[in-house]
Amino acid sequence: MISVMLEKKAWQPKQQVKGTVTWHLDKPPRDLVVRLFWYTQGRGTEDLEVIDQVGVEAAQQGQMSFSLQLPEGPYTFSGKLISVIWAVECVARPSNECGREEFVMSPTEKELMLGGAA
C-alpha cells in the first residue's frame, strides 16, 4: 500500500509542492520514486510529462516528506476536448504498485474552465 498526502489540494505556478508519502509493501522494492507530472484526458491521445522526481529509500515500509518544484505551466484546465490534470505519484519497482494524489495548479488555485465546459 502506497499513499501520497499533499499539504494542500491547490497550488500556484512555480511553487514547491510539499507532501508526505507513506508506504507499506509486501517485500522491499528495487526502487521507489516520487514523481510530479501532468497528463491530459479527453478526445485526444493522452500526453504526459514528468516534471520533477525524487528517489525514496527502498525500504519495505516507511514515510518520507518531499518537495517538488512546479513549473510555470500548463495550468489545470478543462475544455470540451482537453483536460490537463496535475498529480504526484509514488511508484515502487518492480511491482509497479503506486499511490497517486491529484491537485490543481493555476494562478487562481482553481481549475480553469474553457468555453462552456462546467
Binding site: 479527453g42 491521445t45 475544455g79 482537453i82 474552465m113 462552456g116 462546467a118
Partner: peptide
C-alpha cells in the same frame, strides 16, 4: 456540457 475528462467517450476510457 461536460468536462473533457468526464466525457464517457474520452480516449483513455
Amino acid at each position: 456540457m461536460i468536462r473533457a475528462r468526464e466525457n464517457p467517450f474520452a480516449s483513455h476510457r
